[in-house]
């Protein structure tokens, strides 16, 4: 038990770091989801030019590691003269990054609905807007919920990357404590446990949504 003394002394600092992790993830997940829905609609209904632009965007995001994007933007931003606090800078990058993946998840949800549902809605005289609102989205989002939650878990874990550009959250806090206490095993074990608790809770919620999505199917 003496071995864990460094952790027992510093856990509260780590908890604060976790708070920042959650803040960062929360701030990124909202715009990422909103943008993801918009992009999915563009992908399904948009005209050629819009869809081509979207394809380029998806290529870039899926072809470049998030860490590289974060570092790139971190050093690029001051040069462009945009005066953005680093916190918001990384939130923007992470939102744009995850929006791409979320849009693919939402698109899959929409496209996996049988044509029959569209036929039925259309033949009842529904306009596209109404169809999407009461027939397509409720079903598509239920289908997309489990992979969406997976992406949210991934996003939470991805926040650890911002420590490389010097932003403070749980991983950065852990590194600071390790530097001070020279007890990397104990401290990172603590950090791992905290990450695990956050992510496991999210994953459980995802399983709950998955079970709920089976209602009516």
């Amino acid at each position: 038990m003496k071995m864990f003394a460094p952790l027992l002394h510093s856990y509260w600092y780590l908890f604060r770091g976790a708070g920042m992790t959650l803040l960062m993830a929360g701030a990124a997940v909202v715009p990422a989801t909103a943008l993801g829905v918009v992009l999915a609609l563009v992908h399904v209904f948009g005209r050629r030019p819009a869809r081509s632009a979207l394809q380029v965007y998806l290529f870039v995001v899926r072809g470049i590691p998030l860490l590289v994007l974060l570092t790139f933007v971190y050093y690029l931003l001051p040069l462009t003269g945009i005066d953005l606090p680093p916190f918001w800078g990384v939130v923007v990058v992470m939102s744009l990054y995850y929006a791409a993946f979320m849009s693919e998840v939402f698109r899959a949800g929409i496209e996996s609905l049988p044509q029959a549902q569209w036929d039925a809605a259309r033949s009842l005289g529904m306009t596209r807007h109404l169809m999407l609102r009461i027939v397509i989205f409720p079903q598509a989002l239920r289908l997309a919920a489990p992979p969406f939650v997976s992406l949210c878990v991934s996003l939470v874990k991805a926040t650890s990357l911002v420590s490389i550009v010097g932003l403070w959250e749980l991983t950065m806090a852990s590194r600071e404590v390790v530097e001070r206490t020279l007890a990397p095993f104990q401290i990172f074990l603590g950090a791992a446990l905290i990450y695990f608790c956050i992510c496991y809770t999210l994953a459980m919620y995802g399983r709950y949504l998955e079970r709920r999505s089976l209602v009516g199917h």
Binding site: A116, Q117, A120, V135, P138, Q139, R142, V215, G216, H217
Partner: peptide, 11 residues
């Protein structure tokens, strides 16, 4: 119109 596969809204 009524379809061969009913096409009711399952939700």
């Amino acid at each position: 119109i009524v379809f061969q596969s009913y096409n009711l809204f399952p939700h």
